[in-house]
Design a protein around this nucleic acid. Structure first.
Lengths: 110, 110
DNA sequence: AGGTTATATGCCCGTCAAGGCATACATGAC
DNA sequence: GTCATGTATGCCTTGACGGGCATATAACCT
């Protein structure tokens, strides 16, 4: 649930790459292996981590196992992010205001 | 830039806790130490990681170092998340449609 | 049944990250 | 200057993680 598993899973670049691949469309392991350049065992292990983090789901298709993104945990991330987004908006706001106040003049350095 | 430093930094629960603390307000290290229950050195190390990921900024105030969130990298996360958000919305959509089609019937589980 | 394809697991090893501790460094007070 | 406070760093040990390889498991085909 509110485990750190989600973050841990996404901390790895290869796993983020896999997730990105699955964003395009669900894929069987073999395809992921090919597209990611990882070895098959390594890929399977990463998929396991993603599975246990709830990020992906498997559907069996003959001998193949087709992995697909599960959107729910992403939403969790999104929720986590929400409070920070407010901060971000505020800072954009202030930046705008400052630019507005300081100068119809020219280029400033930060 | 598109470094993994951001993810790596946020992968640690303690660091996420620190970030959450800083979301409330900027704080000197001592306060973070107290609030997080971490040792002072450990805290400093985590802060270093956050600093190098660009997540926090330091302002010096006498002997104190006051850390504050830098919103920019959060926006980066947000950008990363955007494509997945579309997926999430689509799935919400489908869920709604299915519920709509299948049944004006009864109580569902979450 | 035996063989083949597709995927998962187990084991070993190198690497890296985190915590604990002592200590260095920096700033301010006297 | 000396001392106190606040923070950063270095060293060491331990534990988790990822890769490679061989092998186990599963589903299918004939």
């Amino acid at each position: 649930m509110s485990d750190g598993a989600l973050w841990t899973a996404l901390a790895d670049p290869h796993r983020r790459a896999i997730v990105a691949l699955l964003l395009e469309r669900p894929r069987p392991v073999g395809e992921i292996v090919e597209a990611s350049g990882l070895s098959q065992p390594s890929t399977s292990k990463h998929l396991k981590v993603l599975r246990e983090a709830g990020l992906v789901r498997v559907r069996q298709d003959a001998q193949r196992r087709v992995y697909a993104l599960d959107p729910a945990p992403i939403a969790e991330l999104d929720a986590w992010l929400a409070p920070y987004r407010r901060l971000w908006n505020r800072s954009l706001d202030e930046l705008g205001r400052r630019l507005d106040e300081t100068a119809p003049d020219d280029s400033e350095e930060d």
